[in-house]
């Protein structure tokens, strides 16, 4: 059985760059552990070993695009919604190595 604790929830929150207060994380951990146990029970169904995973309902071949330049050259449009930008670049807080 998978047990999710508060710290795991907080780590998962960091993966998607959101914060979660300790008490909420603890509550979520408890509920999620319960949910996982319910899901785990349902997934014990031996039938699932007889079929491949279904990733998508789509059944056609992947389309291949011709290698020609059809896009770009639209700096203004690309930057038009940016919260912080120069006429050429998007700006973010200094990224440190």
């Amino acid at each position: 059985m998978t047990k999710i604790d508060k710290d795991t929830i907080k780590e998962m929150a960091f993966w998607v760059r959101v914060r979660i207060p300790d008490d909420e994380a603890a509550k979520m951990a408890e509920e999620f552990t319960e949910t996982l146990s319910w899901i785990g029970e349902r997934l014990k169904n031996p039938e699932i070993q007889t079929v491949p995973p279904m990733v998508t309902p789509f059944d056609e071949q992947i389309p291949l695009r011709q290698d020609i330049v059809t896009d770009g050259h639209q700096v203004q449009a690309v930057l038009s919604n940016a919260p912080d930008a120069t006429p050429e670049f998007f700006c973010v807080p200094k990224m440190v190595e």
Binding site: L43, I48, Q49, V51, P52, P53, M54, P57
Partner: peptide
């Protein structure tokens, strides 16, 4: 496993 269950639903 959930995706496999998805196959069974299909």
């Amino acid at each position: 496993p959930a995706q496999k269950m998805r196959s069974l639903i299909k």
